[in-house]
């Protein structure tokens, strides 16, 4: 029953979510990877995608060339794991990204390392492995576009993008 309600709601906001995302937080940063992309719902609903993105936090950042999960990242990922365990009708694709310093190929591999580090951590916190996929966008999908560390540090990220578990 709960799932049905949520999917109906998701359907209702889908059209909005697709074009109305000024925060830069919503949805997938790249092409839709994996199962169906879904609406974000209301941030006040703790079972909504919006809540996951904003209250739990859908992304962690990395140091230059690194894929280590920092203590700060662990807190965010602990929250993600808890949420995913409580909302088992969602799966996730973890998108790894790099900043623009570095070659295209190396950054693809580096983004994969980051995405996988997050996936491993979530699994270690009890999320079922078959609910978590990874993809790397390397330096192809920056969210910040200046060529300074202030932007780079926000681009070196792994984003946990929720997808409906029904088709995943």
């Amino acid at each position: 029953m709960k799932l049905v309600n949520k999917l109906l709601m998701a359907g209702a906001v889908l059209a909005l979510a697709a074009c109305n995302d000024p925060s830069g937080l919503g949805g997938s940063d790249g092409a839709s990877a994996g199962a169906g992309v879904i609406g974000t719902g209301l941030p006040s609903d703790p079972t909504s995608v919006a809540y996951f993105q904003q209250a739990v936090g859908d992304r962690v950042l990395f140091a230059v060339d690194q894929s280590t999960i920092s203590t700060q990242n662990q807190t965010v990922l602990d929250g993600q794991a808890q949420w995913l365990k409580a909302n088992s009708d969602f799966n996730a694709v973890i998108e790894g990204h790099a900043d623009e310093q570095g070659t295209r190929e190396y950054n693809l591999a580096l983004g994969a390392r980051r995405a996988n580090a997050v996936r491993e951590y979530l699994i270690s916190r009890g999320v079922a492995a078959d609910r978590l996929k990874t993809v790397s966008y390397g330096k192809e999908r920056p969210i910040e576009i200046c060529s300074e560390e202030a932007c780079y540090e926000r681009n070196r990220r792994a984003v946990t993008v929720l997808s409906s578990g029904l088709t995943g």
Binding site: E105, L108, A109, A112, R113, A115, N116, R119, S136
Partner: peptide
């Protein structure tokens, strides 16, 4: 993930990178 492909000089073999579990 598979990426960074390149042909062998004979055109019959392809070299590439394969990423599995974060390792390429």
């Amino acid at each position: 993930m598979s990426f960074a492909p390149r042909f062998a000089p004979d055109g019959r073999t392809v070299l590439f990178s394969l990423e599995q579990g974060g390792n390429t």
